[in-house]
Design a protein around this nucleic acid. Structure first.
Length: 733
DNA sequence: GTAGGGTTAG
């Protein structure tokens, strides 16, 4: 211990001797601490260690430098106290301390020192402003700039190159223009590429691409950053041709693009769907040596995904040594985009195993994969994971969760996810209305629609109106739907589109108001095939042969050889026992090589999907399924089920018609599911590619009574929740 | 002694 203190005393003597000889100011500083009771041995010890490591005479700069390197804030504060007490806070010492505080991450201490400085050099102002902008404290940066101007200090090129970012973050166009004006007066707009690129970036982010382009064109010595800022602006605004033009212009001028340039240019190639151009930029990027830059390669991967070139995007991914969360998310999103939802979920698992924490972009994508696959259990697991990461309450993930629960036939869970949101935005509300709509909860949808319309500040959009019209249509709320449709027609801020019209025609048609639907169609300027076909479906429900034939000729005028029309008409002729015309239509279809999509149903049991085709038993499980099916039908008949053979679209005798109804794919799936699942409280979810027929609808209602279970069926259009002999659609679909 | 640009989502 004695040796230890001896060595400290010896070191201090030697240091004071050196300081007296070389650095008057700092020597006085150490004398001060020599005689001060607050001087801690710890401080001197750490200073000693700093000194010994420096290996050269101590100076103020190197002391500050060492404090920065070791992030020693307390040492910096002691230095500051001394500097201020001894009136040494002139700009050089002051700035060094301030800079060190910033580098140590303490903006608070930097600002306190800044406020205490008697005279501030422009460099000090700039450092403080830059510290604020780079840490997202834009308001404070702008305040400081305004104070600087009011105190008569002239901002310079350094000030503006960091300041402009603050305006775009705050979204304050007027203030931004005022500052731009001052930069012009000072002659900094055109003479300095740093100021120019900051301006271009600012205007691009404020959405003023024309101004951004003007500024860029005016800069005397353009460089890669300046032009890249412009490309980024165009790419993010979707002005992709302009982005490519700037890129080519840059290459022509001999300015070499870098990894930042390539990242954004590739986004534009992807948006344009221009494979040739994409390949060219890819080649240029490879030749420029950016093969392992993650962000650029991520853009490349996304581009190939958008081109539908999945193999190529996988190849880019596997060549990357260290993919980040954005790369993983791009891969997952790309797979979903290309219909490879199962693979995307496997990749998600792989990502989690690689200990890469997912973000809200990732969740938003994988939840969508679940929604497409309608795999409720997996969806729930992913929701739980999102909750674990605290990412389930934001609108991006929230909206996909609501959508997923809606499309999995679990509107109650969609409501829970919706109510949990911190602050629902329009997309989340639209998703909720849509979920209500496809699950036949029209009144709930109307309630949310009117609350949003009347009591929120949100501006409704096309999707809101489409969802609510669908809700009215699926619940047979004709008057409400008509009122909303009229309201939409009168609005000038929202464009009435063909989907809205089809939905309205569907609503009128399916509720039997065929003439009104036809009138509406005739009022429209250019009704499309979808709208006429919608009315044709209604004719099929109400067996309105004359109108159907009238519509057929309209459709065939617009689109000769329209497949759906022939299929709908053949169904209509079959259901009205018009067998001659049925055979004739079938003949036309045969000539056109048209075939109906085979009916198909599937159920998910123990995370395995089982598929069934109508009247087809290729499965080894078929015996048990058929036994169960017979049992269910007998029970249903005992409860009052009478088969309605008018749904059989073939010319055969009644007994065979009845038998053919029994083997509709949804019945096979339900029988299989009831045979396989023993938990009486679990609900069965069946999915069907076509619409459920009226007889199956009735049969399922009786089955829910017979077995005391809930059955949820999703057909090509909506959900039916069957419980205790009733369906949520109120027999209206 | 201070400064500018990027990749993923409903």
């Amino acid at each position: 211990m004695a040796t230890y203190y001896c060595s400290i005393v010896l070191w201090r003597m030697r240091m004071i001797w050196r300081l007296r000889r070389n650095h008057g100011d700092v020597a006085r500083f150490f004398f001060h601490y020599e005689n001060s009771s607050s001087a801690s041995p710890c401080f001197f010890y750490s200073t000693a260690s700093l000194h010994s490591r420096m290996g050269h005479p101590l100076s103020f700069s190197s002391l500050v430098q060492q404090c920065t390197a070791t992030q020693n804030l307390s040492c910096l504060k002691i230095l500051q106290t001394h500097v201020i007490k001894n009136g040494l806070c002139h700009h050089s010492f002051g700035h060094k301390l301030l800079d060190s505080y910033i580098k140590c991450g303490s903006i608070y201490d930097a600002r306190r020192l800044f406020d205490e400085m008697p005279d501030r050099h422009i460099v000090t102002w700039n450092s403080m402003i830059s510290a604020y902008t780079s840490r997202n404290r834009s308001r404070e940066a702008v305040h400081l700039y305004e104070r600087m101007v009011s105190e008569g200090v002239f901002p310079d090129e350094y000030t503006y190159s960091s300041l402009f970012r603050a305006f775009s973050r705050l979204g304050v166009v007027l203030e931004a223009r005022r500052a731009h004006g001052r930069a012009v007066i000072l002659g900094l707009e055109t003479s300095n590429a740093f100021v120019g690129s900051a301006l271009v970036d600012m205007y691009a982010k404020l959405g003023e691409m024309k101004v951004a382009k003007l500024v860029c064109d005016g800069v005397f010595e353009q460089d890669v950053v300046l032009l890249t800022a412009l490309i980024v602006g165009y790419a993010q605004k979707g002005e992709d041709l302009m982005a490519l033009e700037v890129f080519l212009d840059m290459v022509r001028k001999g300015i070499r693009p870098n990894e930042f340039t390539f990242s954004s240019t590739l986004v534009s190639c992807a948006n344009l769907g221009d494979v040739k151009c994409g390949d060219m930029v890819h080649g240029l990027m490879t030749r420029s040596g950016y093969v392992s830059v993650v962000a650029s390669q991520t853009s490349l991967l996304t581009m190939y995904s958008k081109f539908g070139m999945v193999e190529e995007s996988l190849r880019v991914f596997s060549a990357l040594e260290d993919p980040n969360i954005v790369t993983w998310t791009s891969l997952i999103t790309g797979l979903i985009l290309n219909g490879k939802e199962e693979t995307s979920l496997l990749k998600f698992q792989e990502m989690i195993r690689s200990s890469i924490p997912p973000n809200s972009f990732t969740f938003s994508s994988v939840v969508r994969a679940c929604s497409r696959l309608a795999v409720l259990d997996t969806g729930k697991q992913i929701h739980a994971l999102a909750t674990k990461y605290g990412l389930d309450l934001g609108n991006y993930v929230g909206a996909t969760l609501i959508d997923m629960y809606g499309k999995c036939g679990a509107p109650d869970l969609a409501v829970l996810a919706f109510n949990a949101l911190v602050k629902a935005d329009l997309v989340s509300i639209n998703s909720m209305i849509f979920s209500y709509a496809i699950n036949g909860l029209g009144h709930e949808a109307l309630k949310l629609f009117y609350v949003t319309k009347d009591s929120s500040s949100l501006e409704l959009n096309e999707m809101t109106y489409l969802s609510i019209l669908l809700a009215c249509s699926n619940s047979g709320l004709v008057e409400e739907g008509q009122r909303i449709f009229t309201d939409l027609r009168d609005r000038t801020d929202i464009r009435l589109n063909s989907d809205h019209c089809s939905c309205m025609i569907d609503l009128l048609g399916r509720s039997g108001r065929l003439d009104e639907a036809e009138n509406l169609l005739n009022q429209l300027e250019n009704p499309d095939v979808v709208m006429w076909r919608t009315l044709l479906s209604a004719c099929r429900i109400y067996r309105e042969v004359k109108m159907a034939e009238r519509i057929r000729s309209k459709i065939l005028e617009l689109s000769p050889g329209d497949e759906g029309t022939h299929i709908l008409l053949s169904n209509l002729y079959a259901s009205t026992s018009n067998w001659d015309k049925f055979i004739e239509t079938k003949g036309v279809m045969k000539g056109m090589k048209l075939k109906k999509d085979p009916a198909m149903s599937w159920v998910e049991i123990d995370q395995e999907v089982h598929t069934f085709m109508a009247g087809d038993f290729p499965h080894s499980r078929s015996d048990d399924t058929l036994v169960k099916l017979e049992e269910l039908t007998t029970k249903a008949k005992n409860l009052g089920y009478i088969p309605d053979t008018s749904f059989v679209l073939q010319d055969m005798d009644e007994l065979n018609k009845e038998r053919s109804l029994y083997y509709h794919s949804e019945r096979l799936a339900i029988a299989f599911a009831l045979w396989r699942t023993t938990n009486k409280f679990s609900c069965i979810r069946v999915f069907k590619n076509l619409r459920v027929c009226g007889d199956c609808h009735s049969w399922i209602k009786f089955v829910t009574v017979a077995v005391g279970r809930e059955i949820i069926a999703r057909d090509s259009k909506r959900f039916h929740h069957f419980k205790n002999g009733a369906c949520s659609c109120g027999d209206y679909w």
